[in-house]
């Protein structure tokens, strides 16, 4: 029987990559301390900054919001309802319940009212749903944060997300993407600072925290994420991690320390979109172009008078 590293009682959780075991109470304590240390290590934000947490109803984003709340940060939630049937309904409900139980502010944004639902967009777009969905979420979260005076947007991206992206970018030597992969994306040119305080936690560590902290999150996977290449990359990396615990953390942290400083980000000239004013490289931003395609499709499908 493993014993808790802190109190010597029966351990609930064993973390092979850290060679450490904890009871429930001391796992929660370890998790919160590590979140705080990560925020400080990467100079993400301070106690006086207004933080907007992008929440999906899943274990990562709700664990992040819970940790920021417990650590005394000024953090409100932002949920985007993607219009994906029962999945979106359950996700929104989980976020609302979470916020109500803790007396926190949750902003809800409906994509269907602003553009169209993800299933409707999938009918129009000839690319994976995760591609345009991610783009829309980044656009509206950034826009909302600016309009409401939030200094920082925090997302629940974890170590598995980051190493899966890193592996994918390395496999195809996407130098520009590699140069921009960071736990902190600085503010400026129409963008609010974006941070990822959970980059040092595996998905399992977040799920363990959510379970032990009694966070009611949505376990079900987004139906549009099935078969996503990121899941395959995560499974490949987990095989390496099983054989050699600590591989993922080393891969990511050594990339940040040793490789990233050697990469130069391509300087891209940004200007305000002529339609919405949000930053873009072209005349009209990708979201406004998408909205134009939606408008065109609804015109061609409406009965002629």
């Amino acid at each position: 029987m493993r014993k808790c590293y802190k109190c010597g009682q029966k351990a609930t959780v064993y973390l092979p990559q850290h060679r450490i075991a904890f009871c429930k109470e001391h796992y929660i304590e370890w998790y919160l301390k590590r979140v705080e240390e990560t925020i400080k290590e990467f100079r993400m934000f301070g106690k006086g900054d207004r933080v907007l947490v992008a929440v999906s109803g899943g274990k990562d984003s709700l664990s992040l919001w819970d940790a920021l709340y417990r650590l005394g940060y000024d953090a409100d939630g932002f949920y985007i309802n993607l219009g994906i049937g029962e999945y979106s309904k359950r996700s929104q409900l989980a976020c609302e319940k979470f916020a109500n139980q803790r007396g926190l502010v949750l902003h809800v944004f409906e994509l269907e009212k602003a553009v169209a639902s993800v299933p409707a967009l999938k009918e129009l777009e000839n690319r994976p749903a995760c591609s345009f969905c991610g783009q829309l979420k980044r656009y509206y979260t950034n826009k909302f944060a600016k309009e409401r005076g939030y200094k920082v947007v925090a997302t629940g991206h974890n170590l598995d997300d980051e190493t899966a992206v890193l592996l994918s970018n390395v496999l195809s030597w996407q130098m520009d993407y590699l140069s921009r992969q960071s736990p902190v994306l600085s503010e400026g040119e129409g963008f609010v600072r974006r941070v990822k305080p959970l980059v040092k936690f595996s998905e399992k560590e977040n799920a363990l925290y959510a379970f032990l902290a009694k966070i009611e999150y949505v376990e079900e996977e987004c139906p549009f994420a099935e078969g996503a290449s990121s899941i395959e990359h995560k499974k490949l990396l987990s095989l390496l991690e099983e054989k050699s615990p600590g591989t993922k953390l080393r891969f990511y942290m050594d990339f940040l320390r040793r490789m990233r400083p050697m990469l130069k980000a391509e300087q891209v000239a940004l200007r305000p979109c002529s339609l919405c004013g949000e930053p873009t490289t072209g005349e009209v931003c990708s979201v406004c172009r998408l909205k134009e395609r939606v408008a065109k499709a609804s015109l061609s499908s409406s009965p002629s008078s």
Binding site: D160, S202, E203, E221, C222
Partner: peptide, 8 residues
Amino acid sequence: VINAISGG
């Protein structure tokens, strides 16, 4: 059983 892997 809790599976922590998620995609997207």
